[in-house]
Design a protein around this nucleic acid. Sequence first.
DNA 1: ATTATAGTTGAACATATATTCAACTGTCAA
DNA 2: TTGACAGTTGAATATATGTTCAACTATAAT
Lengths: 121, 121
Amino acid sequence: MGKCKCIVCDCNIIHADNVENAKNKVQDDDTLLEMADFYKALSDSTRIKIINALSVQELCVCDICTLLNMTKSAVSHQLTNLKELKLVKGEKKGKEVWYSLADDHVREVFAVTLEHVKENV
Amino acid sequence: MGKCKCIVCDCNIIHADNVENAKNKVQDDDTLLEMADFYKALSDSTRIKIINALSVQELCVCDICTLLNMTKSAVSHQLTNLKELKLVKGEKKGKEVWYSLADDHVREVFAVTLEHVKENV
DNA sequence: ATTATAGTTGAACATATATTCAACTGTCAA
DNA sequence: TTGACAGTTGAATATATGTTCAACTATAAT
């Protein structure tokens, strides 16, 4: 009577009930992928600085450059990135483009995480 | 009378007051880096699946392998990663190592983000 | 003691991604 | 209409990172 083997990791299926229970309660893959992408947007030091600055007030690209001490190109690339992920929006006014947070969700997640980081000192 | 130029991005300092205001109110760089690292932990599909599964219940490495359809090595590497970032903890019991969430902060951030993703349908 | 299995580890590989660079567009002012 | 400047873009480069592979440790069972 051979044991039931996991094909991928070549271990025995040790706790089939646990696996089954977890499988029934986890979020579906699409949702988790979306969440991972959201976190990815905040996982880079440049991008989180931009998000944090925009949570203070609307800023144009050059303001952000000056604030972060970075080139227009680098900042613009990351703003494009954040815009695609719908975390910020940009509005053109004359020669300038003013960026702001797309909605309040980012602010909320940011606040919870800030609290978490501050508590872990 | 030359304008004041930003050295890094070679633009004029357009809105010095905005920059000053933002500079005074943003979080310090260390805090933002810590936050970015926290988000980085959740920004990979494998890691967020692990976190999600562990938020359901304690699991050993092989349980996670079976659940995610991945090798022990790949899962173990990511668990090490998550352990270093203090998001999960592992307890050895005999041959097995049981992993669980390190604390409730992750659960909270996860919940807020899940809500965010679900609302954006 | 020997064998099987849970789990870890470091190196190698492949891929993803952040910044730089140079060229470009669009708008304003002279 | 010409020059200056805000901002964007694509390609190139450099670096970071996820998975695989093979070798390893530790524990339990025979």
